[in-house]
Amino acid sequence: MSGDGTAAATTSPAGGAVDKAQYGMAGFLVLVGGYVLWDASTLTEGFADQPVHAYTFPYAIGAVLVALGVALAVATARGDRPQADDGEDVDLSQGTDLRTLGLLVAVLVGTMLTIDWLGWAITGALLFTGATWALGSRTWVRNLAVGTALSIGSWYGFYVGLGVPIPAGILDGVL
C-alpha cells in the first residue's frame, strides 16, 4: 500500500492526521457497489441454459466494490494517506483552490444547460471566456475574442473539414 511509502509522507499537505476526506471516497464506493447490487437484483434470469446471466457480473462487481470501500475505510483509519497526483503544473504545497474549482464546475454546468438553446458557436465562446475568468485571467475582451474565434472556427472545422454538422442552436441559418 502506498501509505507505508516514505514518498507519501513528503507530499502530504498537513502531515500526521487521518485523511478524513478519504472516508468520503470509501462511502462513495460502498454506495456505488450497493447500487450495482440492487440493480443486479432487479435483473431477471435469461434463458435457463445461459451460462453467464445478465446479473452475474454486476453481482460480482457490486460485491467487490462494497468490499473495497470497506477496505479503504479501514486503511484510512490506520493512517493510510493518498499520495496525490503530482504533475508539471501542480503545486501541492498549497491547499485545494475550491473557489476556482467551483467556478469552473459552474461554467461547465452552464454549458450543459445552454447548449441546446444557444448552440455550440455561442456556448463554446462563453465556455472559454468563463473558464479563463474563473482561472484568474482579467483580459476578458481578448478572451471573448479568442473564444469566439475558437468556437466558430471549430463549428466550421467540423462542418466543412470533417463533415460533422454540429447543431447551430439559435444561430441556425446564420452560420
Binding site: L108, G124, L127, A131, L135, G136, N143, V146
Partner: peptide, 27 residues
C-alpha cells in the same frame, strides 16, 4: 498563460463529448 491553456482544454473536451451524439446529456 495558464488560464487560456486550461480554458482551451475544457473547450475542446466539451466539444469532443458533445460531438459524440449532440446531446447535452453527454456534457
Amino acid at each position: 498563460p495558464r488560464p487560456q491553456l486550461y480554458a482551451g482544454i475544457l473547450f475542446f473536451a466539451c466539444l469532443g463529448a458533445y460531438t459524440v451524439n449532440f446531446q447535452a446529456f453527454d456534457l
